[in-house]
Design a protein around this nucleic acid. Structure first.
Lengths: 128, 128, 128, 128
DNA sequence: GTGGTCTAGACCACC
DNA sequence: GTGGTCTAGACCACG
């Protein structure tokens, strides 16, 4: 399920957050489903429990999961909200990129064309 | 010309690199034009000279500028190459974002529509 | 009667204590009335019996209930004392909050006004 | 300035957050003033730097401070917003307490009277 | 067993 | 020097 890219320069806990957010937003994680325990996931990924803990902690503050101390962590039921928030975050990031594209003079047509190509690639990959 | 956002989490030297690359790619900096000296730019931006030095160093490694010891730093003449490379970098980043968009189920139509909106915004801002 | 909020961060045994104290102080539980047995309450609330046991234990230490080994747990007769102690605890907590309010510069008038609003809300809810 | 109550059961990092928020909200910390460095504060309070770091991190996410990596942490300029948010948090907590007060039958008059007393106490203490 | 907090000590990137 | 991340290992409260 969850795999960490140790080559990636972005912190492990952020990678974790992103992965779990995506899975929750896309519905791979059922509402109220229990997540792996801190310790078990730490073992599985060969990571320090503190790092998992941090990711879970921040996910809770974001409202993606809720945690019952002594029991475990569970997926928050508000899936729709999650999906929407995630969408907006992503589109905001793309808007930033588009600003840069404008700045170096990439035309809208060229840009959109590239997006279409990228989308085709994704479609292919998903079929696998 | 160049302004640094100290609130921005991205390191200053990267902000510098990005700005100078953009200016070079877009033609604001003529080929072989001399850049400000490390010390003068450091004074102007109220930044540690080491930081400027690092930015210039990496820009030279990337081939964006060349330095003549004892003289200063100059914009590399290969503008076209620069522009193309910059474009490709940017589009690669956008492709990554599109993968994420696919992952959480944003349709191509919705995505492209947002891109168009963003482009309009950029166009307006540039007029100012 | 008693319901547990599993989402609440405060430990279940404390929630139990609070609820039972309130009911006793307010007279919903008659003096010398028998409380549900540990096992039955555990079943009813789907909670670990140890948790009930702990709550009952601490309630006994506080003098809110007394236990007759082999018989069960019973509400302590000293209702007035309970009510007064509970009041004082609560007012002490509010005093702490008021200290904070002073610290950040909330005026007495503003604070009291908010209290009145809150009281009105409570009155409405109780009518239901 | 900042003192930690090790007897207090609430986590150290939360005590830190509360203290700094109060000081910022009340204006004891000027906007853009630099906070003590992680290490220095850790030394001063005889606390592990990680704990300070955590507090600072959460304060940044809350928008109370901003941090310039390699430089230090600084008080966020949006003081008014902070004060208002802090007020609302506090009043919400008091509202909870009032609900309890209602539940055990404390009348509004009695409650408000106690509040006035507490306010007088605070006023006296502040004069010191 | 669970999550939550803390310490000690290390390494990194940045300035 | 600064903040940011991570590990290792410990302790606690809770269930």
């Amino acid at each position: 399920m969850i795999n960490i890219d140790f080559q990636d320069r972005s912190p492990i806990y952020l990678q974790l957050i992103k992965k779990i957010e995506e899975m929750a937003a896309k519905g791979f994680l059922a509402p109220n489903e229990q997540l792996p325990t801190v310790r078990s996931l730490a073992m599985e990924l060969a990571i320090n429990p503190n790092t998992i803990q941090r990711a879970y902690g921040e996910l809770e503050k974001k409202g993606v999961i809720y945690t019952v101390p002594g029991k475990g962590c569970f997926v928050s039921p508000a899936t729709n909200t999650l999906l929407n928030r995630k969408k907006q975050e992503l589109l905001a990031e793309v808007t930033l990129k588009i600003k840069e594209a404008c700045a170096i003079g990439i035309s809208q047509e060229e840009f959109l064309e590239e997006c279409r190509k990228a989308y085709k690639l994704c479609a292919k990959e998903e079929k696998k």
